[in-house]
Simulated assay, not measured.
Amino acid sequence: MGDIVKINALDEDALFDAYLAASTSASKAAIIVIPEIFGVNPGIRQKCDKLAKEGYLAISPDLFWRFAPGLQLNPDVEAELQQAFGYFGQYDPNDGVKDIEAVIHAVRAGVAGHGQVRNVGCVGYCLGGRLAYMAAARTDIDASVGYYGVMIDQMLNEAHAITNPLLLHIPTADHFVGSEAQAAIHSRLDSHPKVTLYDYAGLDHGFATEIGERREDAGATLADSRTAAFFTKHLT
């Protein structure tokens, strides 16, 4: 359904790829889909395609373009999972926020023949969930959603800078984000006027993936319905 488009990197003389899906009519808003550590794989493209069917311009940047362009990995294959962990260790999330901001600029200016889209949100998963939090704190993105974002507890000193709505989905049995980290997130963000947190009792990291062994249908459906309502309220 979608196409690969080129995005001008921010403060760098470079272009990077992004997967873009849009309906044939004018988009009601844009949503940046920030992938997990597995790249813009079939599951992430499917999320973009679903958003396009809902009337959004959906675009997913290639986060690892600086050292592993075009990466697409399957988390259910052990060797590819370990490969992804290696790339995560190399990755600088500060570069990711810059790339998200570059996509924001591109979408608002009109990307790949699509008209200008003023309202831009983002939704991210795992590493992308962390980047959604960072984007909320560091950019002027209109609304952000993070699913099982990692290491957010280490960046709570940036919470004061969040001025636009942020929604975080937190599975309580996340084996990458432990109970202490979850408690720290709640302690700092529960009272934040721009932040909404939802817990998912007993669910683990990756529960809302589109395809694969990690998906938990009931939890994914609930979380996605909350995300849809959040974007309807804050982007359209």
Rank of each mutant, 00 (worst) to 15 (best):
K50M: 14
F38C: 07
G39V: 01
I59R: 07
L73Q: 02
P75Y: 11
P75K: 08
P69D: 03
I44E: 08
E54T: 02
K28E: 07
D76T: 04
D62E: 12
S27Y: 07
S27D: 12
I34T: 03
W65F: 13
A79L: 15
R45G: 08
N74P: 00
A30L: 11
G39S: 04
A68W: 01
A79H: 13
F67P: 15
P42N: 14
A68E: 13
I44F: 11
I59D: 04
N41I: 00
S25W: 07
I44T: 14
L57S: 01
K28Q: 12
G55V: 00
K28T: 11
E80H: 07
V77Q: 09
A29R: 10
P75D: 05
Q46L: 10
F64H: 06
A58V: 05
I44H: 12
R45S: 10
I37F: 15
I37G: 11
A29K: 11
P35D: 02
Y56G: 04
P61W: 00
W65T: 13
V33Y: 04
A26S: 08
I34M: 03
K28P: 05
E78D: 10
P61A: 01
I59G: 05
K28C: 06
Q46M: 04
A26P: 00
D49R: 12
D49H: 08
A68M: 04
S27V: 10
Q72T: 10
L71M: 15
K47W: 06
I32G: 03
A52F: 08
Q46R: 14
S27F: 09
E36N: 05
E80P: 01
E78T: 09
I31C: 10
K28Y: 03
N74G: 00
I37L: 09
A68G: 05
G70N: 12
I32D: 02
D76K: 06
E36I: 01
N74W: 00
D49L: 09
S27T: 08
I31R: 12
E36W: 07
A58Q: 06
E78Q: 13
R45F: 07
R66H: 05
I34L: 06
A29S: 14
A26L: 05
A29Q: 09
F64Q: 01
F38R: 06
